[in-house]
Amino acid sequence: MSHSAADPTMHPEVQLSTSKGYFLGFAISAFLMLVATFLVTSHSVPPFGLLMVISVCAGIAVIAQIYFLLHIDISEHNIWNTVALVMFIPLFLITIGLTWWMFSQLYLRTMDMSVMSSAMQPAVHASATPGMADMPGMNAHTDSGN
């Protein structure tokens, strides 16, 4: 137990953080979420385009949060953040990648694609749900149908 650790305000993470950075991160994420919510509720974009736009919004929000709120960068004094990031990236690829792979293989065997694309039609103008278009593996088959 070293005495320098007793004062948490002296830690580099705390020293680096500013209230301006936190507000900026919060404002950017809130704005992007509002944009996404508006696009989804107003149905102003066709389903596949909607998927793309809200994915981009989500991506930017993630980056903003990582940078402004979590202060993850690759500098020397944030070495443990970098370690966490190095661990996170392969895990992220594994979970998303393998999930995408197993479900695309599953759909090849269990889903009748002609039924699927006709089932898409009511979802486009009748309900707020984005339908099957947000499923992994479905995009290639459904975007031509719409």
């Binding site: 895990l91 594994i94 979970t95 393998l98 197993m102 479900f103 293989q105 599953l106 065997r109 269990t110």
Partner: peptide, 18 residues
């Protein structure tokens, strides 16, 4: 431990490769 979770649901039918 991160690469094996599908073995809890082999019978889902994800096919021979998976």
């Amino acid at each position: 431990s991160w690469l094996v979770w599908l073995h809890h649901f082999f019978t889902m039918g994800a096919g021979p490769y998976v």
